[in-house]
């Protein structure tokens, strides 16, 4: 059953769940979690194409995932720091309340 199509399907499912969560939930941390899920779905695609695609010995897909994990860690750190400092100013993590720049 482990084949390219099932991996891609799992990745599409993860991506959609992450997208739905990031769009529907209003807590900033949950939005970040949704984004992390979408990044993970992309990583799964890279690994699946590395495994089943041509030229696996070049390790390109794998390297991309290594860098992507590094970027995701940096993104989570900066994103959470932003949420914390935002919380200090407006005392909420609800992104719909952050509208002080609305005209």
């Amino acid at each position: 059953m482990t084949s390219l199509a099932s991996c891609l399907l799992l990745s599409a499912l993860l991506f959609s769940i992450g997208l739905a969560g990031a769009l529907i939930r209003r807590n900033a941390i949950l939005v970040l979690i949704g984004i992390e899920l979408m990044l993970n779905a992309a990583n799964l695609n890279f690994i699946a194409f590395w495994r089943y695609g041509p030229n696996p010995e070049a390790l390109t897909g794998m390297m991309f995932v290594i860098f992507s994990i590094g970027v995701a860690a940096a993104e989570a750190a900066v994103g959470l720091a932003l949420i914390i400092s935002l919380y200090r100013y407006i005392k909420t993590a609800d992104i719909d309340e952050v509208n002080s720049m609305r005209g």
């Binding site: 482990t2 991996c7 941390i29 970040l32 979690i33 992390e36 993970n40 990583n43 690994i47 699946a48 590395w50 495994r51 794998m62 995932v65 290594i66 994990i69 995701a72 860690a73 989570a76 750190a77 959470l80 949420i83 914390i84 919380y87 993590a93």
Partner: peptide, 29 residues
């Protein structure tokens, strides 16, 4: 899928670092 390094790095970074980072953020906000 045969990506041993990626699988272990995934646990190390996401379970060991990102999840704990998020938990800290939740408790602080």
């Amino acid at each position: 899928l045969g990506a041993q390094f990626i699988g272990l790095a995934q646990i190390l970074v996401y379970v060991g670092a990102v999840a704990i980072l998020i938990v800290f953020a939740i408790l602080l906000t």
